[in-house]
């Protein structure tokens, strides 16, 4: 009896310990802590995109009728780290098509990344928030869609664009053959005249 309570306690402790471990890892990978306040522009750091969502649509079988899949899980937001550059930035995303194993069949699908919510890593972030469009449709043509934009003077520090699973869907037109499909999403951080 006692042993079981011990196991449960271990489980609960693990529950709290894991997110901390995860955070520690992301700080190391970013190579950039936000502990110091530095008002001078850091010439040795760049505006970076450090993560993008990995979207899992699960194992639902694709059939010949039109269907909409809703994301099963999304593990990360879009994360942009800006060490204090004022010229603005923009994140776009494109897809190289939703192809089957041989690359011959394209699903003609559209990925919807709706309801992106810009959130500062630190609640005290005073800079003007970047914006995310309420609806984003990424088709397989390779055309880029804006997903996360900071105007000139906005989006300082670390900002994330958070998606909830219910707002990320995949529209599949009718006539698809039952198969497994893959796509490559390219997330591009652009610094340029807006």
């Amino acid at each position: 009896m006692k042993k079981h309570w011990g196991l449960m306690t271990l489980g609960v402790v693990a529950l709290f310990a894991m997110p901390i471990a995860g955070q520690a890892a992301s700080i190391v990978s970013g190579g950039n802590t936000t502990a110091t306040v530095n008002l001078e522009e850091d010439v040795n750091s760049d505006i970076e995109i450090t993560s993008a969502p990995t979207i899992d649509f699960g194992t639902a079988k694709i059939t010949a009728s039109s269907m909409t899949l809703t994301a099963n899980s999304i593990d990360d937001p879009i994360t942009v780290k800006n060490p204090g550059k004022t010229s603005g930035w923009n994140v776009t995303v494109n897809s190289d098509g939703f192809k089957n194993g041989t690359g011959e069949v394209d699903l003609g699908a559209t990925l919807n990344l709706d309801g992106g919510t810009p959130t500062p890593e630190e609640a005290s972030n005073q800079s003007t928030a970047p914006t995310a469009p309420s609806t984003v449709a990424v088709d397989g043509t390779g055309a880029d869609s804006n997903v996360f934009t900071a105007q000139i003077g906005a989006g300082m520090g670390t900002w994330t664009d958070v998606f909830s699973t219910s707002d990320v869907t995949l529209d599949i037109p009718a006539g698809a053959s039952t198969d497994q499909y893959t796509t490559n999403l390219t997330w591009t951080l652009t610094n340029g005249p807006a």
């Binding site: 995109i49 993008a52 969502p53 990995t54 979207i55 899992d56 649509f57 699960g58 194992t59 639902a60 079988k61 694709i62 899949l69 939703f98 699903l107 699908a109 990925l111 995949l170 497994q180 499909y181 893959t182 796509t183 490559n184 999403l185 390219t186 997330w187 591009t188 951080l189 652009t190 610094n191 340029g192 005249p193």
Partner: peptide, 19 residues
């Protein structure tokens, strides 16, 4: 190796404007 009907991989790119 996966059983997903549609699997997605991410790639990262940067674009620097030149005017």
């Amino acid at each position: 190796s996966n059983k997903q009907s549609v699997s997605i991989t991410n790639q990262f790119a940067y674009t620097l404007g030149i005017q």
